[in-house]
Each structure stands twice: as C-alpha cells, then as structure tokens.
Amino acid sequence: MRVRLSLVALLAVLASSAPVPAAAEGGPAWEACFALASTPDARVKACSAVIDTKSETGKRLAGAYCSRGHGLTEKRELEAALSDLDEAVRLDPDYACAYNNRGRVYSFKRDYDRAIAEYDQAIKLDPSLAMAYNNRGESRFNKGDLDGALADFDTAIKRTPNYAMAHSNRGLVYYRKRDMARALADYTMRIKLAPDLLAYIDRGNVYRDSEQLGRAAADYGEAIRLAPTDARGWRNRGMIRLFQGDFKGGLSDYDKALQYDPSDVYSWNNRGQARLRLGDKQGAIADLRKALELEPGLASAQDSLRKLGAL
C-alpha cells in the first residue's frame, strides 16, 4: 500500500503483478491472468480459469496463483489472497513474486514485521526487484523507521530510476523529515513520470508548508483539472485561498468540496469561517454547527460559535 500522507486522507496501492513465468503458449485466460491492464476482477477470473484447467504445473502454476493472489489483494479479500500466495510459495519456493505479494497482504493486515520478512526473502531471491525494496520501504515507514524506509526507496530508484511511486514515497519521507527541497525534487519527478491528482496534492502540500502559497494553489488547481469530482483538490485550494484572504474564492472551493464529499468536517468548518469573514453570520452558524455535528468537540467550531453567541 502506499504510505499515508499526514494531511490528506488517502490510500493508494502500488500494483505488484506477477511477472509472466517463462514458457510457451497460453490462451486468452493466460494472457488476461498476467496482463498489466487487467482489473482485479478480470485477473481473478482469468487466473481461476487457468488454475481450474489443471493443465499447468510448477512455475507456471505458481505464477497463476501469485497473480490471482495479487488480484484478490487488490479486492481486499486478504485471506483468500494469502491462501493463493502460500500455494505459490509451496509450488515454487524460489519465486520472488510470491513473497513480495504475500508481504503486501501482511502490510494490509498491519503486520509490518511479517511483511518486512517476506520482502527480505523476495530481495534475497531477486536483488534486482525494485518493487520489493519499495514495498519494504513502505512497511518500514509505517513502523516509524524513516531512515530504513529512505534507504529502501533509494535502492528502488537506483534499480529503476523511473519508478514513479518510489519517488513519491521517498518524497514523503523527505517531507516528514522537513527536507522540503528534496521532497519537492522527488514530487516533481513523480509528476513528470506519472502526473495524477495525488502527485499534485503531495507537491502542493510541500509548497503550502514552505509558504509558497501561489505555487500550492496552482498544484491544487492541477489536481482539480485532472479529477474535478474529487473533493481533495477543491478543499486544499480552498484552504490556500483563505490563507490568501480570498474568502469568496475559498467559499466557492468549499462549496465544490462539500458537493463531492459532504462528510468532511473540516470543509464545513472552513466554509463557515469563510462565510463569517464575508458577513454571512447565519450561514456561518449553520456550517459550524454541521462541523460540530460531525465532530463533537471540534475546538475551532466551538470557539467561533461562542463568539457568535450561538453556543
């Protein structure tokens, strides 16, 4: 899984499909079982068809179980995934993919020590497997071992320089270490390699915390352009606009954020603050009360309501 950002609720998972075991023919099911573009449902269905034919043995059968285990992991059917990956290891104890994918299952279970042990074995079997270093780095990060995580992301990038997720993950470590220059460099490389909503939000967060508000707003604007129905771009840009004193712009952004995610307590709170500064006392009270309904005890909402004589 992708390591979590401290300020943006997200969970992005790095795909770890099994490499296709060497050997000859396969049919459509075989191809779909290993195709990078297969959806988790399509992968599970295709790999099940391969397994059910009982025509494959050895490394090829281990590959089918490993790839189906990956699909099941993406579907969060973790026990079924673990069963498949255990079978892949039984069939081919030297198959690095199976250990790497089994590590991901344990990572989703938050058993990071066991996940790291699986990645260790994958790396022992295939020291060139950049994905295993990246995934081990994520587990180390989740244990709070920033230096160990950084070493793993460095190695993943050394093995595969254009590994977008490893750059993103290393950027997050630098961000946590408050090394903003290096964080910006890695996030900029991530955007160059695989521009998406999260890449721009990540870099926008660094610009925000570096008090480069114009650049932060521009990155959040790109996130909005790429994913206009995702609330995260709108609410992050809304915050910047409030910081800049653009309360009408902030209000407009929070309107959109709440349209796409009406459960976000901070969007209600911040829109209330924008309305308060624009002189809309009743609108502010309504928004702040909604924020308190979602999170009783929210200090900023309570303080503002007290000042308005509404609490």
Rank of each mutant, 00 (worst) to 15 (best):
R271I: 02
W30E: 01
R289N: 10
S16H: 12
R275F: 03
A64N: 03
A257M: 12
N270F: 08
R275V: 04
G63T: 02
A24G: 05
Y65N: 05
Y99V: 12
R159T: 07
G137W: 00
G103L: 06
G238V: 04
R225Q: 01
D84M: 04
G279E: 02
L193N: 05
L242Q: 02
G233P: 09
G309E: 01
L150M: 15
W30N: 00
S210T: 05
E31V: 08
W268F: 13
D152A: 06
S16Y: 11
A24Q: 02
I285G: 01
G204F: 03
D303P: 03
V89Y: 10
S83D: 08
A80P: 00
V3A: 07
R176S: 10
I116D: 08
A164C: 01
K256I: 09
A166G: 10
G58T: 12
Q273W: 11
T155F: 15
L251D: 14
K124I: 10
G238K: 04
R178Q: 14
K143I: 09
R289A: 07
G221R: 08
D209Q: 03
G214Y: 04
A223R: 01
L242K: 04
G144M: 03
D41N: 15
L85R: 07
S48T: 09
L11V: 13
P262Y: 13
M1V: 12
Y187I: 11
L294C: 07
R136Y: 06
D84T: 06
S55G: 10
R4V: 00
S107C: 09
D92L: 06
N134L: 05
I123C: 00
Y260R: 04
A156Y: 07
S210L: 02
E293M: 09
E138Q: 13
P296N: 14
G272E: 12
D280E: 12
A80V: 06
E56C: 03
N270V: 11
M239S: 14
E25G: 13
G233T: 07
A42E: 13
E138C: 04
S67N: 12
L72S: 12
A164R: 02
S48D: 07
D255Q: 04
R225A: 02
A227G: 11
D219E: 02
Y175K: 08
N205E: 14
R277N: 11
L91G: 03
E77V: 02
I285H: 13
S6R: 15
A49E: 11
N269Q: 14
W268R: 10
L125A: 11
S267C: 07
E77W: 01
R110Y: 12
L305G: 11
